[in-house]
C-alpha cells in the first residue's frame, strides 16, 4: 500500500519514533508520532524488506540513536560513566536526551546541560557528588574547545616596571577555568584517567585550576588561599588588591609571602595569563 503523507509529516513521524524510548509499537502509538501520522497509517509508511518487517527496519534507526548519544556523552563524561557504571549511565543518557535532545550541528556540546539535569534526578546514587563531578567534566570540555591565545612571554613580564605591578591586571588565557567543589572530584577523575588512587567519596571542599597548554588540557589542585588569589586575579582585580585581599584573610596555616611568589612563578610557567594590563 502506498502512503504519502508528505515530506514534513514523514520526517516528524520518523524523528518522533527514533527519539521515543519505548518499543517500536509504543513509538508509533506515541502522542508525538501520532501528531504526524496515525498509528494505523504508520504501518504502511515503511516498506518491509525480504528479511525485515517495516517496524524492524525502523528499529535499526531507533537503536542507533541512543548508542550515538551515549558515545558522545561518555566522551565528555568519562568520570561520571565510571562512577555510575555502564547500565546506570545509559539509563541516565536516555532520560537526558529526552529533555535535552541535540539542537546543534555538533555533538560536542550535547552534554552542556548535564550538570543542571542531574540536579533534577532523585534516584541518582550520591547525587551531590555526581553533580560536582559533571560540573568539573563540563568545565574541562570548555577548556578543551576554548579559543587559543599565546600565553605571556617572559620578556613581556620583565618589561613591566616593578612599580606598575600593584595596579596592573592579569588577563587569563581563554582556555582557563578555576573552580571550587564540594567533593574531591578532580582526584576522582585522576583515578579514572590517570589510574591514580581513588579518593574516599565524602564531602570535602577542593579547589582546582584547569587550563590548556600546547593544546593539552591540564588541571591542578589548589590550596584554598591560592584559589582565593587566582580567582581574584582572574575576575579582574588588580594584582595589589588581589594580594591584599588574600593576605588579610586569616588562613590556617598562615600564608607566607614566599608562597605568593611560588604560586605566581608556577602560574606564569603554566601559561595561565595572556596579558598584563597596566593602569593608565
Amino acid at each position: 500500500m502506498v502512503t504519502d503523507p508528505g515530506l514534513e509529516r514523514i520526517q516528524r513521524w520518523m524523528q518522533a519514533c527514533i527519539e521515543d524510548q519505548g518499543t517500536c509499537e509504543e513509538a508509533i502509538a506515541s502522542e508525538r508520532a501520532r501528531a504526524a501520522i496515525s498509528a494505523e497509517e504508520a504501518r504502511s509508511i515503511v516498506l518491509p524488506s525480504k528479511t525485515l518487517s517495516s517496524l524492524e527496519r525502523l528499529d535499526i534507526y531507533r537503536g542507533m540513536y541512543l548508542l550515538r548519544m551515549e558515545e558522545a556523552l561518555s566522551t565528555d563524561y568519562p568520570g561520571l560513566k565510571h562512577f555510575l557504571g555502564d547500565d546506570k549511565f545509559m539509563r541516565m543518557v536516555e532520560r537526558y536526551v529526552e529533555v535535552y535532545p541535540s539542537r546543534s550541528y555538533t555533538l560536542n556540546r550535547l552534554g552542556d546541560h548535564l550538570p543542571k539535569f542531574l540536579r533534577t534526578l532523585d534516584d541518582l546514587p550520591k547525587k551531590d557528588f555526581c553533580c560536582e563531578l559533571a560540573r568539573l567534566e563540563l568545565l574541562l570540555t570548555e577548556v578543551f574547545d576554548a579559543e587559543d591565545a599565546p600565553p605571556l612571554t617572559e620578556a613581556a613580564v620583565r618589561a613591566v616596571p616593578p612599580e606598575a605591578w600593584e595596579t596592573a591586571r592579569l588577563k587569563p588565557i581563554p582556555a582557563f577555568a578555576i573552580a571550587e567543589f564540594d567533593y574531591p572530584v578532580s582526584q576522582y577523575l585522576g583515578g579514572v584517567d590517570e589510574e591514580n588512587p581513588f579518593p574516599r567519596i565524602a564531602r570535602k571542599k577542593t579547589w582546582m585550576v584547569a587550563y590548556r597548554r600546547d593544546f593539552n588540557v591540564s588541571r591542578h589542585d589548589l590550596e584554598r588561599p591560592a584559589y582565593a588569589l587566582l580567582s581574584a586575579l582572574a575576575s579582574g582585580q588588580t594584582v595589589g588588591d588581589a594580594i591584599v585581599g588574600t593576605m588579610t584573610q586569616r588562613w590556617r596555616p598562615a600564608v607566607k609571602e614566599a608562597c605568593l611568589f611560588e604560586w605566581f612563578r608556577d602560574w606564569m610557567a603554566d601559561g595561565l595569563f595572556q596579558a598584563v594590563e597596566l593602569a593608565k
Binding site: 504519502d4 508528505g6 515530506l7 514523514i10 516528524r12 527514533i18 550515538r68 535532545p101 541535540s102 539542537r103
Partner: peptide
C-alpha cells in the same frame, strides 16, 4: 536529513524519493 523541529538526531536519515522531496 538529520532532524526536524530544531532537533539533530546526528544520523543520515533516508529521504522518501518523491517529486515533492525532489523539488524541495
Amino acid at each position: 536529513w538529520t532532524g526536524v523541529a530544531g532537533h539533530n538526531t546526528h544520523d543520515l536519515l533516508p529521504m522518501p524519493y518523491t517529486n515533492e522531496a525532489l523539488r524541495h
